[in-house]
Simulated scan of single mutants.
Amino acid sequence: MSTSPGFAGKAFIVAAIGTLSTAWLMHEAPTQSADVSLHASDDIPAHATRDRASTPPAAQAAQAASAVPPAAPAYRVETAQVTHSFSEAASKLGIDAATAAQLARALAGRIDFRRDLHPGSEVRFVFRNDAQADANAQAGTQGNAQTNAQLNTQTGAATAASTTATADEDLPLAVRISTGKTSHDLFLYRNLDGKAFYYGADGQSNAPSFARYPLDYTRVSSSFSPHRLDPVTHRWAAHDGVDLAAPAGTPVHATARGTVTFAGWETGYGRVIKIKNSGDYSTTFAHLSRFAKSLRAGAQVREGQVIGYVGSTGWATGPHLHYEVHVDHVPKNPLTVALPKRSGMSAEEKEHFAEQVAQFEPLL
């Protein structure tokens, strides 16, 4: 009887051999971690990984900071040389005519722009950088809906103040005018309504409520004096004002706000205008060729308003303006008299203003 296995036995033997072969192959194959990484950092050499891991956190932070470009400075300083006039020098730096006039008024009591400035004088301005202003504007627009709703419920007065404050963001924050011998500084300050004013470093307004000069004259033909030989009467008498020579027809301006008390003819004065100004001040304008239209006694005039024109009426040897300033009815020298200044800031406002001066004065 044959002892060879049947077909079923052969199949069993083949399956067993296959199972053993598979087990042996799995045992000989190299093992692999179950945590397989698919990141590109797997290609970094091991020493680079060790170096990065050994870098202190402070050094890593410094490296990260150095990769960030430096922020633009918040302010910039620009300088121009005077060649012909202050307004021309200011326009070179982008200052418009209205702002230049505002600055000139703010320094009217300290400097005569026509005579004190000369070629070589220097004007310096501190501006807010456009990039910084844009960043501030962008930051201001990132408020949430609740903040916007609160802003929309503010009063109309507050909205108007905000509009005023943002309408002239390009105004210079500080100004220095150097004539070679002296320098004069102005600093921008906004009141609670957002209106812009310029003050000296002490918080006082440099702008007087009076202008020093009533016209664009060529020279002082006769000075203020308690005793002068009159060129017409040939007698010694007080000269209660100054004679400012100018071509006939040159406009004459009111030097301060006030009320016309007289406009007519007087012996010696010829055509003359007398104005009662604020406080104890009054002014007189004589030898005029004619008056401005509609000017009469009782009329209100503002500073800078044209009130008449240069002539040689009355006792005059040539075209000029005779100009007087009286304080409490006493004649004073118009070229040196202390002129009343506009009201300054409150004590609290001065405290905030001093902080601004400390910030911007070193930049000038």
Score class of each variant (00 low, 15 high):
F187T: 05
T159P: 00
G180W: 04
T163F: 02
L188A: 15
D185Y: 08
S183E: 05
A174Y: 00
I177A: 07
S183R: 04
A161R: 00
A165E: 12
T166N: 14
Q154D: 00
A158S: 12
N152F: 03
S178E: 07
L171G: 06
A165H: 07
G156F: 02
N152H: 06
A158G: 04
F187R: 04
A157T: 12
L186N: 03
D170L: 11
V175F: 07
A158L: 13
A161T: 02
R176N: 10
E169N: 11
A167V: 09
A157H: 07
I177Y: 00
T159Y: 03
E169V: 14
T179Q: 06
T179M: 01
A167I: 08
Y189R: 03
V175W: 02
R190P: 03
T159F: 11
R176E: 11
T163M: 08
S178N: 15
T155W: 04
T159C: 05
D168N: 13
E169K: 10
A158K: 11
L173H: 01
P172R: 01
F187D: 04
R176S: 13
R176G: 03
P172M: 05
R190C: 03
T163G: 05
A161D: 03
T163P: 01
L171H: 14
A174V: 10
K181P: 01
A157M: 10
T155H: 07
A158E: 11
L171C: 11
S183F: 10
A165M: 13
T164H: 08
R176T: 12
T153E: 14
P172N: 07
T182C: 08
L171I: 10
T153C: 06
S162I: 02
L173F: 05
T163I: 09
Q154C: 01
R176F: 01
S183G: 06
T179P: 06
P172F: 01
L188Y: 09
D170I: 10
L188F: 07
A157F: 06
A174E: 07
L188N: 13
T155G: 15
G180R: 01
F187C: 00
A157K: 11
T153A: 14
A174R: 08
L186H: 03
T182N: 15
V175D: 02
L186A: 02
T155L: 03
T166S: 15
S178L: 00
T166F: 14
S178P: 02
A167T: 11
H184V: 07
A167S: 15
L171D: 11
D168C: 09
S178M: 00
Y189L: 00
G180I: 06
P172G: 01
T179A: 01
L171N: 15
L188H: 04
A157S: 12
N152L: 10
E169R: 14
E169G: 08
T182D: 15
T155Q: 09
T164E: 12
N152C: 00
A165D: 10
T155C: 07
L188V: 13
S162C: 00
T166Q: 15
A160I: 06
I177E: 01
T182L: 12
L188T: 12
A165I: 08
T159I: 13
S178K: 08
T155S: 15
H184T: 09
Q154M: 05
D170G: 10
L171K: 14
L186C: 04
T182Y: 13
T159H: 15
A167C: 09
S183Y: 04
A157Y: 02
T159A: 14
A157E: 12
H184Y: 15
G180K: 03
S183T: 08
R176D: 05
